[in-house]
């Protein structure tokens, strides 16, 4: 079970945090947001980090999930759970339909196509006022309840987000370790070589695109019920960029790196508010410095650094050993 050591350690951390710091703003409120972003980042990382396909429109799927839940519960009186499932189904079908034509493209063209997808969804959310409430958004979205257990406090939302993240994480780690995971990495290395090895690259890419979209849709539904109000601003192009930054910052092709990136990017602005007017500037500078000095991402570079330090300590007697990449 060595493969899942990280998973269990992370689970333990998520359980311990609210126990040690109950009612702490940074744990329950900011932590909850960070966990939601992490759900998105883990999904996007499968697509970007492992399969090597960029997406600048991931906020679209987040938005579809959120609006599906919001519209079905507020306008049609659905229970949140079937509404969430309907959102997932809709996202799945849509992602499947757009995946094939879009993922034929490569590099900049793929980036542009996904960017377009994100913008189209945003425009639809703004323009179809009758359904989405337009720029003013939708309010009075009901909260969630799990068998009578109402999710009505920040701590409870932390728990829901944490459980969902662990599920998505577990799924992601298993996909990566499976045959499809190896296929994804082969695809990243060279699409032609992967096809030569008998991998159906189109099916693999479509599959991972749908999975990434589904995790975003799930996070979107949870977001809608947590906030009880949504407007198109939350699903704009800027959020897509933020998600890409999380994945890149943490370290591409490292699932825990994506989580780490999400956590850092959620917490940094909260911690930087003490600098008032210089907040945004310092935020930018930190991101720049990180990418210059830790180009493989915060988590991956940090891991390597730690390993090197440990190895140096161990080389008192033994020589520096060989370490496989994570």
């Amino acid at each position: 079970m060595k493969r899942l050591t990280g998973f269990w350690a992370f689970t333990l951390l998520l359980v311990l945090l609210p126990i040690v710091f109950p009612d702490n703003y940074y744990v329950t409120v900011v932590g909850g947001t960070a966990l939601m972003n992490a759900i998105l980042a883990v999904g996007l990382n499968l697509l970007m980090g492992y399969a090597g396909q960029i997406s600048l429109g991931h906020a679209a799927f987040f938005g579809i999930g959120a609006y599906a839940s919001a519209i079905l519960t507020t306008r049609y009186g659905w229970n949140p759970w079937p509404a969430m499932s309907a959102g997932l189904a809709l996202t799945g079908v849509l992602a499947f339909l757009v995946a094939r034509p879009i993922l034929r493209l490569k590099g900049h063209y793929l980036a542009m196509a996904t960017l377009g997808l994100g913008i189209i969804v945003h425009i639809i959310l703004v323009q179809t006022e009758g359904l989405t409430g337009g720029p003013d958004g939708l309010s009075d979205i009901p909260g969630l309840a799990i068998f009578g257990w109402a999710v009505d406090s920040d701590l409870r939302w932390y728990i829901v987000m944490a459980v969902t993240l662990l599920l998505v994480l577990w799924l992601a780690l298993n996909i990566i370790a499976s045959r499809s995971g190896r296929a994804l990495r082969a695809l990243h290395g060279s699409e032609i070589a992967a096809e030569m090895m008998g991998i159906d690259t189109t099916a693999t890419k479509t599959g991972v695109f749908v999975i990434a979209a589904l995790s975003a849709s799930l996070a979107g539904s949870l977001f809608a019920h947590q906030q009880s109000f949504i407007s198109p601003d939350s699903f704009s192009f800027f959020f897509s960029i933020e998600l890409v930054t999380m994945v890149v910052l943490g370290g591409m092709a490292s699932t825990f790196g994506a989580i780490f990136g999400a956590v850092v990017l959620t917490f940094l602005p909260e911690l930087l508010v003490v600098f008032e007017d210089y907040e945004v500037m310092i935020f930018g500078a930190i991101l720049m410095l990180m990418m210059i000095f830790l180009p493989q991402g915060l988590f991956v570079s940090g891991q390597q650094l730690l390993r090197r330090l440990l190895a140096r300590r161990a080389t008192g007697t033994a020589k520096e050993g060989s370490h496989g990449a994570a």
């Binding site: 703003y25 947001t33 958004g137 920040d154 906030q227 407007s231 601003d233 939350s234 602005p269 945004v280």
Partner: peptide
């Protein structure tokens, strides 16, 4: 005071804060 940058998502967190 906190700067939301116009984002409702940030506004929610800052109001909680």
């Amino acid at each position: 005071h906190y700067d939301t940058g116009g984002s409702p998502k940030k506004a929610v967190n800052f109001v909680k804060r």
